[in-house]
Computed example of a mutant assay.
Amino acid sequence: MNTLDGYLAQHETKFWLGGPAVVGRVLELDALCIVARMLAMLKEPQRRVLLLGQRGPQAQSLIDLMQKLLDSFNLDNVRSFLVNILVELSKRSRLYPQRLVLPNIDIRGSQITGGTFGDVWKGDLNGRAVAVKMMRVFDSRDVQALMKAYSKEAVLWAQLSSPYVLPFCGVYCADEPSPRACLVSPWMDKGTLPQYLKNNPAANRLQLMLDVALGLEYLHSFCSPIIHGDLKGLNILITSGLKACIADFGLSIIAQDSKIHFTVTATTNGQGSTPWMAPELLDCDSPERRRKSCASDIYAFGCVGYEIYAGRPPFSEHHSPMMAIVRNLQLRRPASTELDNAVWELIQKCRDTNPASRPNASEVVQQLR
């Protein structure tokens, strides 16, 4: 509250001085007062329980109000507080802002590609090309269950702002050919990382690897780090400015933690995401070790680095990549002349079998730079 009080004291006078933006400044002051009241409630245990215990229409109204504040005002250093409240209430109420619920989307043509949890189609949203990921769920009852389970991730994704993380447009419930839950994001003409590298063999691989590391650093920098959980080349898209940006975080964690019946399709040489999975995630004897973490994301990043220079997933020459990982087999160094010793050493460090020995995302960025 000291930070907020100081902000108000610093800006209140100039908000009332007039000028062309006086109305906007007054509204911003009102927004800060609303946030201040919310933060004051969170400091008192009973009122905190009351605020975060809202459900149904009351929770929806609060969630929509907080999203409107975040969308409309530059709240500076109190923004993170409001995001935390919004995400926590969304998680508990299993609701998300109504502005994330998109109207009808014109889905054009045929399926573009398929991933582990969904099929990607190209669509049109108010004249803007978008990617529509239709989630594969077991039956129609799971559609709303998925949307509720994904509420926290959807809300959090909508607040993120990084050139290295794919923006999130919202959620959409398609009716044809059957009820499907859809996640919508901007369309990327350059395609996925493997597609781009195949079509552009002279691409700057080191820069692409740094872009992915910067996206991971951004996700891991939050007070409660955002775990991607399924980092691989197919979940990295290339922007029109030729930057790599991370997509599809959180879905594998939802599938792992919920009772939703996903229809999971094995992709990439029939092995799904196994070639990018850290050894501890395959440890059947230790459920605690199997929890996805920043360290398992870093292991996957090392595998993406290998993928960038080798042009194929790790252990793609093996019949069972899972057995290769469990047996701690070493990857053969790619023959690429662009891969120098320092980058190859970093890839190996990221893939260390001991999670504690792997560098963190900031250290990876520093070394790549």
Rank of each mutant, 00 (worst) to 15 (best):
F73V: 01
W187M: 08
A36D: 13
R289L: 12
P97E: 01
L368F: 01
S258K: 10
S316Q: 01
L146N: 08
V264D: 07
D64E: 05
R205W: 00
S162Y: 04
C284E: 15
S90H: 01
I63Q: 02
L234G: 13
E338V: 09
P97I: 00
V165G: 07
M66N: 04
P103K: 08
D64W: 08
M41I: 04
V22C: 10
G24W: 13
L39F: 00
A213I: 04
N269M: 04
G233N: 01
T274G: 00
I236F: 08
M1D: 09
R25I: 02
S93T: 13
K91D: 10
M41N: 13
L281P: 09
M135L: 15
K292N: 11
A300C: 08
M322L: 00
L8G: 05
L86P: 06
R289E: 08
L29W: 06
G123C: 14
R48S: 14
L52A: 12
R205V: 11
N328Q: 11
A356R: 08
Q98N: 13
I236Y: 06
F73T: 02
E345D: 12
E44C: 01
R99E: 15
R108M: 10
F117T: 02
E44P: 03
L125G: 12
P186I: 02
V78Y: 10
L206V: 09
T3M: 12
P97V: 01
D64N: 15
Q60E: 14
R180G: 06
D340Y: 09
Y164A: 09
D257C: 04
Q10Y: 10
L234P: 09
T263G: 08
A9P: 10
Y150K: 07
C223G: 07
S185G: 01
V130Y: 06
K43L: 11
K232R: 00
L193H: 07
F138I: 14
L219V: 05
P179V: 14
A149V: 07
N328K: 06
N341W: 06
K133T: 03
A213S: 12
T263N: 13
V365A: 15
P177E: 07
R333S: 03
R369W: 07
P355I: 10
C284T: 11
C303W: 05
T263W: 08
H228Y: 01
L17N: 05
M1P: 12
T116Y: 07
G118F: 02
A149G: 02
A181R: 06
S80P: 01
G191T: 00
K190E: 03
S161E: 14
T274H: 00
G56E: 09
I308V: 08
G115M: 11
L281S: 02
E288I: 13
V364G: 10
R290E: 01
Q348C: 13
L281F: 00
Q144I: 07
F222C: 02
V101Y: 05
P194D: 06
S252R: 15
L193A: 09
M134R: 11
I34K: 15
L65H: 14
V264A: 13
L193E: 00
L50N: 03
C173N: 12
D248F: 11
S362C: 14
M209Q: 11
C245Y: 13
Q60L: 07
L42P: 13
T113L: 03
D352W: 03
R108G: 07
P359Y: 08
S362P: 02
S110I: 02
S221V: 01
P20R: 10
Y306D: 01
W276I: 09
